[in-house]
Design a protein around this nucleic acid. Sequence first.
DNA 1: CTTCAGATGCTCT
DNA 2: GAGCATCTGAAGA
Length: 199
Amino acid sequence: MDILTQDFYARDTLTVARDLLGREIVRVLPDGTRLVCRITETEAYIGRLDKACHAYGYKHTARTETLFAPPGTAYLYLIYGMYHCLNFVTEGEGEPAAVLIRGAVAVENGDIIAKNRFGCKEKNMNAYQRRNFLNGPGKLCRGLNLTRAQNGLSLTAPDGGLFVCAGQPPAPGAIQTGKRIGIDYAEEAVDFPWRFWYG
DNA sequence: CTTCAGATGCTCT
DNA sequence: GAGCATCTGAAGA
């Protein structure tokens, strides 16, 4: 198992966001079951200069403390009262930044992920469910059974039950870039092309 | 295919 | 009290 180390996350956030495409998120359940999915869509958030980032202007609050944690830390928070978003902390000492995981495809134990999402087996999903399986941050967290209970976990320690493996990154030419989703409040930052996807 | 309202609770002012 | 890095189901074109 080639688990990505802290060096991977301790880089420029835009670089990490691109480089995370094709990588595999491994979620080890308490009973040892491995839920695995491949990352297909990411977004970068950089507190230093990005009004869409929770820690814009180095703002410290109870929620943003995780963004100041070492690179390779999982940042999870509750959104709209009922969904969760999974991020990976990037950059380095004192620089609050992270990559939001917006989309993925199931690789291992898809039946359990499908059960978390729709209460059925992967094979029994209808066409609409297949198309909308893990293509959103809230959907991904629901499928992998991730909540704020995992906030602050280290992604570089295998015993945490959440880490990322090397996987198979796409060819650079296959990566598409665009504006981020759902941050209309962020003034000039709404136009930053910090969303990456492929496939 | 599209738009649209409602759900639901934490976070920050 | 206002707003939120979302999703779903229903209804219409």
